[in-house]
Computed example of a mutant assay.
Amino acid sequence: MGNERRLLTLAICLVLGGGLIAAVLGASRAAGPHAGAADGRPVASDYVDIRDVLRLPAAAPAPGSEGSAGSMVVDCGRNEQGHYNEDNLVVSPGLLGGAHHTHAYVGNLSTDALSTEASLDAAATSCAGGDRSTYYWPVLRRPDRPGTRPHEDSAGHGNVGEIVPESSVLVEFRGNPVSKVVPMPRFLRAMTGDAVAYTAADESDVRARWGCSGSPDRATTRYPRCPAGERVTRTLVFPSCWNGLDTVGVTHRSHLLFTAANGVCPKDTFPVPELRVSLAYEIPPGLNVALDSFPEQRHSPKTDHAMFVNAMTDRQMAAVVDCINEGRVCRT
């Protein structure tokens, strides 16, 4: 009888021990590369000293005789109007709060989830030249300071803290090194980056490029730690090969693709002006910032993304195309 009790006790211990091990392993797998970040905040491995980042390889080939070497800067300010919301007109139109995190905007001052082509066309804009397009991206926060303004605590889902304002915003359209560009259609919708990169099966859609203002030849997918006096930068480059048919893709990506490394567009697509949004922030050295994200994405810097809706008039877009194709440097 004593042996039976001892065997029963041993069996119970083995079962309980196995359950505990399984629970620990399960928790570790669930935590993924951010094991230990119970509150979902970024961890030490999300940050890197910019001096430890490798220098970028040689720039893309210069435009040839058939290329388009010009550029057009669209001056839309840096969101001095405080245009923020938790909507995403490109990905979840019609769904208020559908982004589950806060976006900052320049350009069209009316943009939200309920915007239509007519409402965008009739709205005011922050762009000096009258461009009514909308350009937006997730905000960057200081988790060490509580958010006190309405747009700072309305997102929830772990997106907390004071929003860091952009110290500069550069909206620029560039050409293609091997071809002239054609006009974007009106109300073309576009996105770049991967908002779910942390849990994605691969990083094929990651376009996050972070850096420091004093090291333009270094870029990373991690939060950079910059020397004192330098700004943290984000560069968001959009796809620029249009299928010639759709203004809204089935997956928000299928109608607009990226060029190959040599600038050639995929088969059956045409080069349109390449949109590049460059952001800069005053961040004290050593401060841990956090990008707004979906809860399960744990504010990973790889999830950086941006959206764009082209609301330029045909005349405005023609001016962009002419400037780029003629190799001029323009500003509006």
Results as ranks from 00 to 15, higher is better:
Ala37Gly: 07
Gly94Lys: 08
Ala59Gln: 15
Ser71Met: 08
Glu117Gly: 01
Ala31Glu: 15
Leu14Ile: 00
Trp137His: 05
Gln81Cys: 06
Ala104Thr: 06
Asp131Pro: 08
Ala113Met: 02
Glu80His: 10
Arg29His: 12
Ile12Tyr: 07
Ala62Thr: 14
Leu120Val: 03
Val48Tyr: 05
Gly107Asp: 03
Gln81Ile: 10
Ala69Asn: 04
Ser154Cys: 07
Ala69Asp: 00
Ala35Arg: 13
Cys76Leu: 05
Ala44Gln: 08
Ser45Lys: 11
Pro61Ala: 14
Val53Gly: 02
Gly156Met: 04
Ile50Glu: 02
Ala31Gln: 14
Arg142Glu: 15
Ile21Met: 10
Ala122Glu: 13
Val90Gly: 01
Gly32Tyr: 09
Val53Leu: 09
Asp39Pro: 01
Gly19Phe: 00
Asp46Asn: 08
Ala23Cys: 13
Tyr47Asn: 06
Gly40His: 03
Gly82Pro: 08
Val53Arg: 03
Ala22Val: 08
Pro146His: 11
Thr134Arg: 01
Leu120Tyr: 02
His83Asn: 07
Ala44Lys: 07
Ser92Cys: 13
Asn108Arg: 04
Leu114Trp: 09
Asp75Gly: 04
Gly18Met: 04
Tyr84Asn: 04
Asp75Gln: 10
Asn79Met: 07
Met72Gly: 01
Gly40Gln: 03
Arg29Ser: 11
Arg29Phe: 13
Tyr105Asp: 00
Ala60His: 11
Gly26Ile: 06
Pro33Thr: 13
Ile21Trp: 11
Pro42Ser: 07
Gly147Thr: 05
Ser110Met: 12
Leu114Lys: 10
Thr116Gly: 01
Arg145Ile: 09
Val74Asp: 06
Asn79Tyr: 09
Ser45Gln: 13
Leu89Tyr: 10
Ala44Asp: 10
Gly94Ser: 08
Leu56Ala: 13
Ala118Ile: 10
Arg149Tyr: 12
Thr111Gly: 01
Tyr135Ser: 05
Arg132Ile: 02
Arg78Ser: 14
Ala62Asp: 13
Leu54Thr: 11
Leu120Asn: 01
Cys127Pro: 03
